[in-house]
Design a protein around this nucleic acid. Structure first.
Length: 442
RNA sequence: GACCCCAUCGUCUAGCCUGGCUUAGGACAUCACCCUUUCACGGUGAUGACACGGGUUCAAAUCCCGUUGGGGUCGCCA
């Protein structure tokens, strides 16, 4: 039993597309599960459209996803001589011929081309009925470079690829490639055509459906393990009801035969949910490390690591992506806060507030220990003295201190914000409500 | 249009290969309730699907055929 050899063959004519990434993932998972090899082949025969920066981004995205490849990537642009020699052989046997500087392969004109697809079973094409198969296939362009279908066959054979796992949009390329294998005397690999990732309207996922570049997901604060988990569940499942599966477990459980034949619609909400699950599982120091770049991007520099980790702990349960963090925690970093209109309207209209804020500011100012427990105890005593309920007191105070109606636990927030800021903001709020009342209410 | 592929809740899916154990299971989303100082997390519950029509069979989501629907491909792009 020869060991499994698969490949992922991107063209550096764009970023790593989410659909391509899933194809790469299935190849990688299959190779690792079978303890085979996963190669990278760069299909850069299109001189016009191939760009170095695209290549760099694709490689970077693959690394980020954790899809490590074996050996060095093979570049088709460096193998023109090999393709040319192979084409010469065909010409020598009169199986191909030059025509206006291009070379065409004599396609068989009658009969059928059939193959066993690992997922679909027998697939066959009647050569007399399929329009695109009627013409002789161009294998070398007049600019001297090989065509896709030719280079693919030469390389897959030369690299000893045992399984070609690719999108099912390639099914129609297979009957063009098979006669080439035969003419060249190569044994064809096992083909496995997997379904595409679809957009909401069930057409192949593209930019108009939303983010398609892996990099965009990375930048939006998606965790790579969550994306890998999500992508693996698009068109495949372990067979039980398991939703959370890490990389190692994926490798262990992945079976090509369990891949579905139906295209799957990409669902952003479920990805977010899954990402949230992974965020929740992270150790605080790790999560903090991952969050720091997002803070820096916003210009929020934090020198007190211990404080930051306490803050991260407060938000770990409520963020779905890393990029949300600076927004949700904004009031911890900005000196000045502005009141959210709706929040102010709803929670800053109680006539007792000016006095309550003043008293509360004074109380906090006098506190020795500024920990959550002490703050909560003293705060509750104050509420009682003021004759206010928890809701009547806490909601307005939250708006006073954070500017919004949503935040982590109030007492934790006050504690972490620190005495100085909390007191200052409460006094400002006292002035604010007084002024508003003088003007005739909010 | 021709050729090819596909068809279970709105979405991702289990079950289909090896027909009965299925009043079709889980997850996301939605709704309700619980927890609670808000949001979120967590918990409980609800709504919700075998595209249709023929066969085969004692029995079909599961096998076969057709219809319909959707998608993909028809380049000297990859």
């Amino acid at each position: 039993m020869p060991s499994v050899k698969v490949r992922f063959a991107p063209s550096p004519t764009g970023f790593l597309h989410i659909g391509s990434a899933r194809t790469a993932l299935f190849n990688w998972l299959f190779a690792r599960h079978e303890q085979g090899q996963f190669f990278l082949r760069i299909e850069d025969t299109d001189k016009e459209r191939s760009k170095k920066e695209f290549l760099d981004e694709i490689l970077e995205s693959l690394k980020w996803l954790g899809l490590d490849w074996d050996g060095e990537p093979v570049f088709q642009s460096a193998r023109t001589a090999f393709y040319r020699q192979t084409a010469e052989k065909l010409i020598g046997k009169n199986l191909a011929y030059p025509e206006e500087n291009a070379v065409r392969f004599r396609m068989p004109k009658t009969g059928k081309v059939a193959f066993q697809d690992l997922l679909h079973g027998q697939i066959e094409f009647d050569l007399t009925q399929h329009i695109s198969l009627a013409e002789d296939l161009v294998i070398f362009k007049s600019d001297g470079s090989p065509t896709y279908n030719f280079a693919v066959v030469c390389d897959d054979a030369d690299m000893g690829i045992t399984h070609v796992i690719r999108g099912d949009d390639h099914i129609s390329n297979t009957p063009k490639q098979l006669p080439l294998y035969e003419a060249l005397g190569f044994r064809p690999p096992v083909f496995c055509h997997i379904p595409l990732i679809l957009g909401e309207d069930r057409s192949r996922m593209s930019k108009r459906h939303g983010a398609t570049a892996i990099r965009e997901y990375q930048e939006a604060g998606c965790l790579s393990e969550a994306l890998v988990n999500y992508l693996s569940l698009l068109g495949w499942s372990p067979g039980n009801n398991q939703e959370i599966i890490g990389r190692d477990e994926l490798i262990q459980k992945f079976e090509l035969r369990r891949v579905l034949k139906t295209g799957a619609v990409f669902n952003k909400e479920k990805l977010e949910w899954l990402n949230g699950q992974y965020v929740r599982k992270l150790a605080i120091p790790d999560l903090t490390d991952k969050l720091v770049p997002y803070l820096e991007k916003r210009g929020y520099a934090v020198s007190d690591r211990a404080w930051l980790e306490r803050l991260v702990l407060l938000f770990q349960e409520r963020i779905f992506s890393l990029a949300q963090f600076p927004d949700l925690a904004q009031f911890f970093f900005e000196d000045k806060i502005t009141y959210n209109d709706e929040a102010a309207k709803e929670f800053l209209k109680d006539g007792r507030l000016a006095k309550a804020f003043e008293s509360y500011a004074a109380l906090l100012e006098g506190l020795g220990d500024f920990n959550t427990k002490t703050i909560e105890e003293k705060s509750r005593t104050l509420m009682k003295d003021l004759g206010m309920s928890g809701k009547e007191f806490i909601h307005p105070c939250r708006v006073a201190v954070t500017g919004r109606s949503v935040s982590p636990g109030f007492f934790e927030t006050v504690s972490l914000l620190g005495k100085e800021k909390a007191v200052e903001r409460l006094r400002q709020a006292a002035q604010f409500v007084q002024k508003k009342r003088a003007e005739g209410g909010i």
